[in-house]
């Protein structure tokens, strides 16, 4: 794994989230309280700014530190959710660089942490509707795991459109949440795409 992987992830995720802040805001205004875009932007800007702390670390510890940054900076429910995800993922990632098996097994710990923190499962119109299929795709992929992850993120995101929210602020809308994709699933899909892009250029 390329030595500047942490730096690339740090910069690219922040840039991608910044480029889509307005989109996330609009999605969240439709079914939430409209703060998801700015909360994510603030969190990933803080990660991007932590260059000195992060870039010298192996991927696992860097993910943990980035997760803690999100927890402390985001301010909405997405802070503890994404924060727990990255902290648990990074903590479980033992290899440096991680093998494909290590990557998948540790990612599973991260996804489990999101379920625990949100007391939620896939199918409830949340970020888990992207993360769970992506994890499954990586774990089960016969061919290229990156391509499988991309497709799973895209398909998973789309499944949230017809779901009725039962978790988070969107659940107040009940039936009226149907027809909108979930902002948390959208931000997860953006992050998955970005990680795939970075991994493809840094094999």
């Amino acid at each position: 794994m390329a030595p500047d992987l942490v730096r690339r992830l740090r910069e690219e995720t922040a840039a991608r989230i910044a480029a889509h802040t307005d989109e996330l805001t609009a999605l969240d205004q439709a079914i939430g309280d409209g703060d998801h875009g700015f909360n994510m932007k603030r969190g990933f800007e803080a990660i991007a700014a932590a260059a000195e702390d992060l870039d010298a670390l192996a991927l696992g510890p860097a993910l943990q530190k980035a997760g803690m940054t999100l927890v402390m900076k985001v301010g909405g429910a997405s802070g503890p959710l994404y924060g727990s995800f990255l902290m648990a993922w990074g903590k479980a990632m033992t290899g440096d660089p991680p093998t494909r098996e290590d990557f998948a097994a540790s990612l599973a710990e991260g996804v489990a942490a999101v379920k625990k923190r949100g007391r939620s499962e896939a199918g409830e119109k949340t970020m888990l509707d992207v993360l769970v299929p992506v994890l499954d795709a990586i774990t089960q992929a016969q061919g290229d795991p990156i391509a499988a992850a991309r497709q799973a993120a895209k398909d998973g995101l789309e499944t949230t459109r017809d779901m009725k929210a039962t978790k988070g602020r969107a659940s107040f809308l009940g039936e009226r949440s149907i027809g909108h994709i979930d902002p948390g699933a959208r931000s997860s899909a953006l992050l998955v795409e970005t990680v795939c892009d970075v991994l493809e250029e840094n094999p």
């Binding site: 402390m72 985001v74 301010g75």
Partner: peptide, 13 residues
């Protein structure tokens, strides 16, 4: 009360 920038939200710290 409020996030780390003073807007609506909560701040773990």
């Amino acid at each position: 009360g409020g996030n780390s920038e003073g807007g609506l939200g909560t701040d773990v710290g």
